[in-house]
């Protein structure tokens, strides 16, 4: 198990701003908190500033303004990066190296001792299923293989915090499942995983908390349960039209489904208030086709976040220009 810091956030960002030359305001005051030992998902449309935010944390991009901490040290503190693993999007390893040499080189750059490097290289190549390719040149690897080696590379320094930018990009479904398992194992070991991905279904499966960036700002942030609590409801599908008492009940919404069915919708996450409704429907002799608890999935949440409520249309992709929202 990885030793946890006393009550401090793994990532605690305040007012992170980035204005690129040409007045592209990529980040407009990001506040974000990632708890230790959780898998945190960062999502957002193209150009929302996700990669810029990750790069700022990894000192690849210099922020225009930033305060906050990463593993308890100020953002940009170089020695702290020795405890952080990172897999960039579209990473490019030197083509003249083998998979094992890649792991060894980047681990050495993170000041990992030689003995430890040897041990972890063999171990992690095995974890990502690349042991047989260890001594083959990177130039012969497929995209999926590169991602696997990239993930192993990010774990070579036994990091407390792992930032992964699109880790399943180009990976087949089996590989994705394996990567997901690795992430869960990292979380179980007490490590913090910060995941930036477009694959909402992937994120939904592993993330305990998410943040959605839209045009350089955090549009939503929290646990999936919290973010979807308002959307939690029960849906009862019945045959025929709704009984008269349903139409008079303000807590039950009804809508026709097809020609002979009706959906009854009751807001709330608790099953208690649903019971009397079900009882009355049955006593009326109404045929209940199905009853299910429903909540927004991550895709619904995402679409809600990227939609302008005033127009009902999605925000234009990309960052804001000149400091204003487009």
């Amino acid at each position: 198990m990885v030793k946890q810091s006393n009550g401090q956030m793994a990532i605690d960002l305040h007012n992170v701003q980035k204005m690129y030359r040409g007045k592209v305001h990529a980040l407009r005051g990001i506040d974000m908190q990632v708890h230790p030992g959780e898998i945190f998902g960062l999502l957002g449309p193209n150009g929302a500033g996700k990669s810029t935010l990750v790069k700022i944390m990894m000192t690849v991009v210099r922020p225009t303004q930033a305060s906050g901490t990463m593993l308890g040290r100020p953002v940009g503190h170089k020695p702290t990066l020795g405890r952080v693993g990172y897999l960039p999007e579209h990473h490019r390893f030197p083509q003249y190296l083998t998979g094992a040499q890649v792991l060894d080189f980047y681990a050495a750059m993170a000041n990992v001792s030689r003995t430890e490097r040897r041990r972890r290289t063999a171990e992690l190549l095995d974890v990502v299923g690349m042991s047989e390719w260890a001594n083959k040149k990177i130039s012969s690897y497929s995209k999926g293989m590169l991602q696997r080696v990239g993930l192993a590379q990010a774990l070579m320094n036994d990091p407390q915090l792992v930032l992964l930018d699109e880790p399943t990009d180009g990976v087949d479904p089996v590989g994705r499942r394996e990567i997901r398992d690795v992430l869960v194992r990292l979380r179980d070991e007490g490590r913090t995983v910060f995941l930036n991905s477009h694959l909402l279904s992937e994120l939904e499966l592993v993330c305990s908390r998410v943040a959605i960036l839209v045009q350089g700002e955090v549009a939503m942030q929290g646990s999936l349960d919290d973010l979807t609590s308002e959307s939690r409801r029960y849906e009862i599908l019945i045959l025929g039209s709704p009984p008269g008492w349903v139409k008079e009940n303000a807590d039950v919404r009804h809508e026709p489904v097809g020609v002979d069915r009706t959906r009854l919708v009751m807001q709330g996450a608790e099953p208690g208030p649903v019971q009397p409704i079900v009882d009355r429907l049955r006593s009326d002799g109404t045929t209940i086709v199905s009853l299910q608890p429903v909540r927004e999935n991550l895709e619904d949440l995402f679409l809600r976040a990227v939609t302008d409520p005033s127009t009902g249309k999605a925000y234009k992709p990309g960052a804001a220009r000149n400091g204003g929202a487009s």
Partner: peptide, 12 residues
């Protein structure tokens, strides 16, 4: 791009 990120993100 993609190559420099990997080394800049190290403690050096």
């Amino acid at each position: 791009g993609g190559a420099i990120d990997l080394v800049l993100s190290k403690p050096i």
